[in-house]
Simulated scan of single mutants.
Amino acid sequence: MQSDRKMLRDDQWKKIEALLPGKVGDPGRSGENNRQFVEAVLWIVRTSSPWRDLPAELGNWHTTNTRFKRWGEAGVWQEIVEAVSGDRDMEALMIDSTVVRAHQHASGAAKKEGRQAIGRSRGGLTSKIHVAVDALGNPVRWLLTGGEQSDMNQGLPLIKGFQAKAILADKGYDSNVFVDYIHANGMLAVIPPKKNRLVQREYDRHLYKDRNVVERFFNRIKQFRRLATRYEKLDRNFLSFINLVFAYLWIY
């Protein structure tokens, strides 16, 4: 019987087990406790507890934290989510962003340690997670910026290279460059025009209602409290949590 501290069912574990370091044939240490380790990181990202409060049954907090960072540096978390996110429904792509308040402990990292996408906006120190989700609400691409960054500047990086029937976004993404790119690539732009446009564009108002899919996605990820408030100083570590949560949602 699984402890109520654990999140992975057996069928979910089987989907990622072979993707993790330490399996037969890999150099270095054994991955015998990989499941316990992933459960430990999921517990941290779900509860937002300090690493020192990790339950003893999930391992030593210091070695778990160190291993979490090493996997992030090696790109393991990114590889996991890329491996499990192949079955995409490209009927439509919905894009949006969510602001994450940065805890005071998240600021102050030395530049030489790595990138830190934390900016100052009206809400104080914040980061933004920009996401494109498919028609079923699964994440297909995401970017991390400071909270002061405009959504419009991230629209093209979120969809470039993808081919969907329609791109759904709110009026914050209404720009001629972005809309022209969508149309030039044979996709439908479902983006309300800003009020200050001299000529108001038409858009499919009925289809636009489906944009709530991306809003529901943000509601889901904010249930993982470590994504609702940023405690990590470095982007690399915060993105590791993001990648793990997004992989979990793909295999849920």
Rank of each mutant, 00 (worst) to 15 (best):
A109V: 14
D26S: 14
E215S: 08
L249T: 02
M90Q: 01
P193L: 00
K222E: 09
F178M: 03
R5S: 10
L198G: 15
F37T: 05
V213C: 07
N34R: 09
Y231T: 13
S107T: 15
Q12K: 06
R141N: 15
A135P: 07
V199F: 05
L156M: 11
L143A: 08
W43N: 01
G31W: 02
L156Y: 14
R5G: 03
S49A: 15
G72Q: 11
S127L: 08
R101F: 02
R220Q: 10
N33S: 12
D210Y: 10
E39V: 01
F37V: 08
Y173T: 02
A106L: 10
Q36G: 10
D235V: 05
N34F: 03
D11P: 00
H105E: 14
R216Q: 12
V81Y: 13
T63G: 03
K112F: 09
R115E: 15
E202S: 12
V100L: 11
G108S: 14
K233T: 06
S175P: 00
T229S: 12
V190F: 06
I118M: 05
S49I: 02
G86R: 09
G172I: 03
V131Y: 01
V131F: 01
Y231I: 10
R35E: 01
A169I: 02
Q36Y: 00
M152K: 14
R115W: 12
M94T: 06
W142Y: 15
K111V: 13
S175G: 12
G31K: 10
L136P: 00
V199D: 08
A169F: 05
A135Y: 04
L93E: 01
G161D: 03
I242Q: 02
R216H: 14
Y208A: 13
R115S: 12
G124L: 06
V24P: 10
I182H: 01
Y231Q: 12
M7V: 13
G146I: 00
Q12I: 04
F217V: 01
R9Y: 06
E113Y: 11
K112C: 10
V100D: 02
T98K: 15
P27H: 10
A228G: 07
L42C: 10
V133H: 07
D180A: 14
S150P: 13
N237I: 08
K171A: 14
V131P: 08
P21K: 08
G161V: 10
Y181K: 09
R201A: 13
G22H: 09
V199M: 07
L227F: 04
I159N: 02
K15F: 03
L20S: 06
R67Q: 14
I129P: 00
F162T: 01
L198H: 13
L8I: 10
V214Q: 11
R236E: 11
F217N: 03
I251K: 03
H130P: 04
S175C: 09
A109I: 07
N138V: 07
K222G: 04
G123K: 11
I129L: 15
W71N: 01
L58C: 03
P55I: 05
V190D: 09
F246L: 15
I16D: 00
M7A: 14
S150I: 03
T63M: 07
Y173V: 02
I95D: 01
Q163W: 03
I221L: 10
I80A: 09
F224A: 06
L42V: 09
Y173K: 03
G161N: 06
M187W: 06
V38K: 03
Q12S: 11
S127H: 04
H206V: 15
